[in-house]
Amino acid sequence: MADKVLDWLLEEENPSVRYLTLSSLMDRSEDEAEVMGAKEAIMSIGVVPTLLDLQNEDGSWGKPERFYTDKYRGTVWNLVILAEMRADPKNERVKKACEFILSCSQEFEQGGFSYTQSAKTKTGLPSGVIPCLTGNMVYSLIRLGFIEDKRVQRAIDWICSYQRADDGIEEPPSGKLYERYEACWGRHSCHLGVAKALKALAAIPDDRRSESVREKIEQLVEYFLLHRIYKKSHDLEKVAKPGWLRFGFPLMYQTDLLELLEIFAELGIKDPRLEDAIRIVANKRNNEGFWKMQNSFNDKMLVAVEEKGKPSKWLTLRALKILKFYDEL
């Protein structure tokens, strides 16, 4: 890991990357003054304070009822950004955003998250519950300090109960939930639903994972191992998701090889079936030691995050964490 790359990641203009570089790449203690200073700066410099300044009084962004459908400016998407950036869970505006999405998007009976609201109850409409959204919201709410909340625990139970990891079956499960959207619940599990569910469960601290969470993580991990993450499981010579080889951040409901490998590294999983994916990450490093942003939602989000085609601190941080864990640096 070149000193110039590390110095670049530690620049103060991006406190989120600085904090994560110190804590998760350099393994510095959370109690160290430099780490605490970087964490505190997240709320005063850059994307997070800019985004919070655009927040409505009720905790939403834009038109409150378009919390999901206003891509990528509505409340759902901004909550994902706040979580990725490690916004302070104790901040009142952050808490308000979490409470807003729990009240209007979570489906009351089973605990999944819906992209639309019931006109009668003002909670998540059951027919709009989808797996990628549920995974994204559980991940975000855990990162933003709501893991103890009973509503989040119900959403975790929803993932453990309903998130599938089928690799092509003749007869999909029956029932109203599975009959709503072919893309989400058809013969083959939705890759994005599996990815976001795994991301959510991986965010639960190891000592807080129940037996059902551990079992579900194993299922979701094996699903991606069968696919070598990005290939067709039944023909490993073919790429199933070519877009996953173009790295970006933030990814919203999408994912890519880099995000998934970071999750595998955080889970401590080493498996020969990951070798090809790791090699792809290593080969995308340029001569200066950086990784470039290849996929971006800039101009669609309220706040720009880095620049497409330019060296990316977020991607470089993720890639270095992966290569460090797999001893490829």
Rank of each mutant, 00 (worst) to 15 (best):
K231P: 06
F290V: 08
G289V: 06
K232Q: 07
L315F: 10
A240E: 11
V239K: 08
K308A: 13
T316C: 05
E306G: 08
L274Y: 04
A282W: 00
E262Q: 15
K308Y: 13
R246M: 14
R246Y: 15
K241R: 14
I280K: 04
T255Q: 02
K231F: 11
L320A: 06
T316A: 13
I280L: 10
K232G: 04
R285T: 11
K308N: 13
L315R: 09
K313D: 08
K308L: 14
F290Q: 09
R228P: 07
W291F: 11
E266D: 15
L320Q: 02
A240R: 10
T316N: 00
P242K: 05
V305G: 00
L267E: 03
I269M: 05
L320R: 11
D271W: 02
M301Y: 09
V303G: 01
K292T: 14
N287W: 03
K284G: 02
A319N: 01
Q294F: 09
G248M: 01
K241C: 14
L274H: 07
I269A: 06
N283P: 05
V305E: 01
T316H: 10
A282Q: 09
G289N: 06
L245P: 02
H234P: 03
D276S: 06
K300N: 14
L302Q: 10
Q294P: 09
L317H: 01
P242V: 05
A240C: 05
R279H: 03
I269R: 02
M301E: 12
L267P: 00
K241V: 14
D276A: 06
E259T: 05
N298V: 06
D276F: 09
T316V: 04
M301N: 10
Y230A: 00
H234E: 13
L261R: 08
F290I: 04
M252L: 12
L260F: 10
L236F: 01
I263T: 06
E288F: 07
K321N: 03
F247H: 04
D256M: 02
D235A: 08
R285I: 09
I280E: 00
E275V: 08
I280P: 03
E275Q: 12
W314C: 06
M293D: 04
S312Q: 06
V303H: 00
F264T: 11
E307I: 11
K270C: 13
G289C: 00
E306D: 01
I280A: 07
K310V: 01
Q254E: 15
K308H: 08
N286S: 07
T255D: 00
E306Y: 05
A240H: 03
D299L: 02
R273N: 04
R318F: 15
D271A: 13
D299H: 15
L251F: 03
V239S: 03
